[in-house]
Simulated assay, not measured.
Amino acid sequence: MGLSFASRAQQPASTLPDTSFTVHSALQKARKQHPNITVAQPAVPANVRNQTNLSYCTTPEGRALQLDVFYPKAKRKQRFPAVLLIHGGGWRSGNRLQHVPMAQQLAGRGYVAVTAEYRLSTEAKYPAAVQDLKAAVRWMRANAQQYAIDTTRIAVWGFSAGGQLASLLGTTNGNPLFDTPYCYPKHSSAVQAIVDVDGILAFIHPESGEGDDSKSTSAATYWFGSPRSAGTALWEQASALTHVSAQTPPMLFINSSVDRMHAGRDDLRQKLSSYGIYSEMHRFADAPHTFPLFNPWFEPTLKHTVDFLNRVFRPR
């Protein structure tokens, strides 16, 4: 296996953040094929409250990780299901602000929505990002009373690299390899539903383009800290497809027409079906990979998300 998880997480590739993936840069790229698209910035629902820049975990190296919380105004003793939203950017770029509009709209529909940062590959290698996000789920449970969270109904939602992380987080419920002994260790990091928006499910797969370093270093090669040719154990371990079991929660897949961005999805759905686990898939034909950030795809992405969560989180 090489380096231990702990030592790998302390080996940065660079001290400089990568700011190459932004909503603006994604818009300019997508407009080459879709000139009429616009950035999704819907009005914030009137019943939504928020608290921002909250520290949810400090790593052993002293790194304070932050998140933002968007939540409905609650009546006494009312509890809401919750969603952790994970941004994309090739495990190397992007930031949690990119999904604030989605978080606000989910909060307006009766969900506590949390957007959390995590350590990127310029700062720490795999599996640090997964460990960080599991700590964010534990934070949600530890602070459930303050934000009226129903701790039995927590979902994880991710886009692109965030979708891969969401799927891995959810398929490894209870797996000690991905949890850490710091930051609310007495609380569970398990989630009860997964929404993967164009995130890869299997790195070692005929549909996957990750690991092809022939023209430039792939995002996954940066994240794992070594090329696929040096050994595939970590690449397989980081694939949600590897971990599917009878305990995997229901999953929703929302996809563009770019097959490599959701490599392994169909195989994973077959596994889920064999265990009798519910899943859904929705695909936007001809949509760019970055579709959830833009109109006209934002609203249907939101609707698919809410419809799925309402189905699997039936009121009790």
Rank of each mutant, 00 (worst) to 15 (best):
T232V: 14
I200P: 00
E236F: 03
S245A: 02
S216I: 02
D196N: 15
D213F: 03
A240F: 08
L252C: 02
E210G: 14
S218V: 08
A238F: 05
P206E: 14
G225H: 10
G225T: 10
W235M: 09
A230W: 09
D198P: 00
W223F: 15
L252E: 08
G209L: 12
L252P: 03
A230N: 06
P250C: 01
N255G: 00
H205I: 06
G209A: 10
S226Q: 15
G199V: 01
V244D: 01
L234E: 12
W235R: 04
A202K: 07
F203H: 13
A240L: 12
T221D: 14
S245T: 01
S229W: 06
D213N: 15
F203E: 11
N255F: 01
S218G: 14
P249I: 00
Y222P: 00
S257W: 02
P250D: 04
M261W: 06
V258E: 10
F203L: 13
F253D: 02
G225V: 06
G209D: 13
F224Q: 09
S214C: 01
D198T: 15
G231K: 03
S218A: 15
S229I: 04
Y222S: 07
T217A: 14
A246V: 08
G231W: 06
L241H: 01
S216W: 08
K215A: 15
Y222K: 13
D196V: 07
G209F: 11
F224E: 10
E236N: 15
G231E: 11
A240M: 03
V244H: 03
S257H: 05
A219I: 07
P227Y: 07
L234D: 13
A246Y: 08
E210F: 14
E236T: 12
T217M: 13
A246D: 14
V244W: 07
I204G: 09
S229K: 08
L241C: 02
D196F: 03
V244L: 06
E207R: 03
W223Y: 15
T248D: 09
I204M: 12
D213C: 06
L241Q: 04
A220S: 15
D212E: 14
T221C: 07
A263I: 02
R228K: 15
D259H: 10
W235I: 02
E236D: 10
A219F: 04
A263Y: 02
H262T: 10
P227C: 07
N255H: 05
M251A: 10
E210P: 01
D212P: 07
P206T: 13
G209S: 12
F203R: 05
